[in-house]
């Protein structure tokens, strides 16, 4: 649901004369509604469809944010390599100017 919401906002805010976002947005909106109805029927605490959408968005955001530290560890490895690398000298890119 979070990804569909984000993609709908992305398509609407990056609209230009050659984009054809109607069909993707309609299908994604239907999918969001189906997901919201499903979540609402499975969870007794959620009274309305709006509550189901809010709950799903929060769970989705938490799920994505939890991965960020692991991605950052991977990035730190590549930055470590980039910080200490020694590349062979190339006369074409001689910076002595």
């Amino acid at each position: 649901m979070l990804a569909n919401f984000s993609l709908i906002i992305f398509q609407l805010s990056s609209i230009h004369p050659y984009s054809k976002p109607t069909i993707p947005i309609v299908v994604q909106s239907i999918l969001i509604l189906i997901s919201a109805f499903t979540v609402n029927s499975l969870n007794d605490d959620l009274e309305t469809i709006a509550d189901a959408i809010r709950f799903s968005l929060v769970e989705g955001l938490l799920g994505i944010l939890v991965i960020v530290p692991f991605l950052y560890i991977l990035t730190i490895y590549f930055l470590f390599r980039a910080s200490f690398r020694k590349r062979p000298f190339d006369d074409l890119l001689d910076s002595s100017e």
Partner: peptide
Amino acid sequence: LMTIFSVLGAIVSLFLF
């Protein structure tokens, strides 16, 4: 559990898009 389902949902949504 939250992460697995969020990532799976995001991948399926992107693929469908």
